[in-house]
Design a binder for these strands. Structure first.
Lengths: 340, 340
DNA sequence: TTAAAAATTGACAGCGCTGTCAATTGTTAT
DNA sequence: ATAACAATTGACAGCGCTGTCAATTTTTAA
């Protein structure tokens, strides 16, 4: 039923080793032979047995996606991007959810890698931003690719796919400025996350480039949560507070923005008439809030596919891809922002 | 470094075959021997090599989770539930996203199963509710477990884990009735989904048991989407329409409910004062709407783990578990419902 | 034209495990 | 105590593939 390498060899009239060479894209096979084999492969609809390859060879054809779960939408998008790259390249994907706050996480993952014969790992924030964790993994016999926030890799522990949150945040803030806002609040996400830091930098840069004075009181420390958005917005908009009341709020992600929206509703502040709010991430629910959120979108699927391909080419020891891809999230204007 | 079965055999002073017997939980091993082996396994922290097991034996230690993507939260929860069951049982999980609307889906999945040497499949709605698709899979040499909406399995194609949406919907509707509502609108999800049908049945049953006349005009056909909630609620609440204006709306899921909330906002109807709205699913964002949604929660993680364990025991040919587990989603009262 | 070097191909062992079947040990009934 | 049986154990082949290395063919150089 299912064709083996033997069947292909017979059909092509060569040895199984030659078939093996062809399917592994090795160089020393004559063009003619290669074609014969490829024809046989097609005819028999042959697909190499992953278990056997993994068992026999020194190489492994499995990579793993290790994630902590900040956001189901993000994970699913990433996962599907990685999955389709894997399928295309004949790799197998192991999914490994874990908890970044767990003290033993390094041990846990190191163990998994050792036991599962894994060739490479893909890490997303917050795991990709834990230097000690990453170091421990790089020290093992696996390749690592990280998806991170920033414009350039912070170190050379591993190749990275960078998401330029800074530029995107600047664009968003500029959008607010273009609408006439000058008092723009900022509700931060978890301070430990690079994305928060980067978005903050972009916000600051936009203000600076437009010569708007920076007011520290307009910056609220928070975390990536709805509740943080609620309390942040309350704090910013409270009439008792002695700071300037902002006319716009930059929320570090959509969840915070949704919280801010919620708070505004509580305080009878109408959006966007009295207050503009922007989010970040373009989560599905950002289209389902009232009003719909202006936000920034990043092609997670594609980013993940990129990372997976980068990783696989590392594993294959093909040219040591030094090119680091960078993505800049794109502004999406919806209904939560308006002229001042 | 990594211990093999050979190391264990030496350490325990038995043959590798005996070790194999112990790790596979076969019967004919003397208790004393079994203990010796188990001790060695522990000492060496031995974990069997999955690739080798899959290659050597007739059995396979891989199962697959096939899903169409209705909802990232749902998928992630399910996936993690399955994953942890797999880890516990020493199985490997293949993830296979696909598109239920794709004509070739059966061929695609059948192909995957054939090529990947998979022992079993877990199916969630809508895939689990496509009889022809399921039949094609059952016809292959794999076990199948479905997660479905209903109280009993609709057929005996495969064991099922049932989610009793009907009873849950009745409870939710009853909650509305208890609050004094009698004109209760219903915005349906995709009519093809069993969950829609079941929730509708529960709604009808609650009305009937409280002797409330059923008004067909209060039922809006829709789909599981935000937009459907918007238009459904508009239709129900429009003053021009010649039907009774409901004082409460049962939305078939949270997304629809969010849409209904949105529409109410558009129409200046205050929730829950002028209109109560309930959702279903307890999506994370149901806590982040204004006001927070009353909804129904189901333990997806646990349901998935159940399904995975059921599948694995099928695969292992352990007692042909005829017990079908049933879960009833639980009412969660929040702020979108109030007295009439 | 022929020897030497290079390119191409294949034979064979073995990855870590399980299935088969035969050898050994223990148990029961006589 | 011993034959007859059952329970337990192990030897060995082989799953489908890759690594090693040697055999063969082709190319190059003299």
């Amino acid at each position: 039923m299912k064709a083996t390498i033997n069947d292909v060899a017979k059909q092509a009239g060569v040895s199984i080793k030659t078939v093996s060479r062809v399917i592994n894209n090795e160089i020393s096979v004559r063009q003619l032979t290669r074609e014969k084999v490829q024809k046989a492969v097609e005819e028999l609809n042959y697909q190499p047995n992953l278990a056997a390859r993994n068992l026999a060879g020194a190489k492994s054809f499995s990579i793993a996606y290790i994630y902590d779960n900040p956001n189901a939408y993000y994970i699913i998008d990433m996962q599907e991007g990685i999955l389709s790259a894997c399928k295309q390249q004949g790799f197998e994907l192991l999914i490994h959810p874990c908890d970044a706050k767990n003290k033993n996480i390094t041990e846990e993952v190191v163990n998994m890698v050792k036991h599962a014969r894994i060739a490479g790992l893909i890490l997303t924030p917050p795991l990709s931003e834990m230097p000690e964790f990453v170091k421990s993994l790089v020290a093992l016999d696996v390749k690592v690719v990280r998806i991170m926030s920033g414009d350039v890799a912070p170190d050379d522990l591993s190749p990275c796919v960078m998401v330029n949150d800074r530029d995107a945040a600047q664009t968003i803030t500029q959008h607010l400025i273009d609408l006439g806002h000058t008092d723009i609040g900022f509700i931060a996400g978890d301070a430990k996350h690079m994305s928060t830091v980067e978005r903050y930098k972009g916000y600051r840069r936009a203000l600076k480039e437009s010569n708007i004075d920076f007011d520290k009181k307009l910056v609220i420390e928070g975390e990536y949560s709805f509740d943080s958005g609620v309390s942040g917005a309350k704090q910013l908009m409270s009439t008792e507070s002695n700071n300037t009341r902002p006319t716009a709020i930059f929320s570090c992600n959509d969840e915070i923005a949704a919280g801010a929206l919620f708070a505004a509703r509580l305080m009878n502040i109408s959006i966007p008439e009295q207050l503009s709010i922007v989010g970040f991430e373009n989560s599905p629910f950002s289209r389902q809030t009232w009003p719909k959120l202006t936000t920034a979108d990043q092609p997670n699927n594609q980013i993940a596919g990129d990372a997976a391909n980068l990783l696989i080419s590392q594993v294959r020891k093909q040219k040591n891809q030094t090119t680091i891809s960078q993505y800049v999230p794109k502004l999406i204007i919806r209904d939560s922002t308006a002229k001042c």
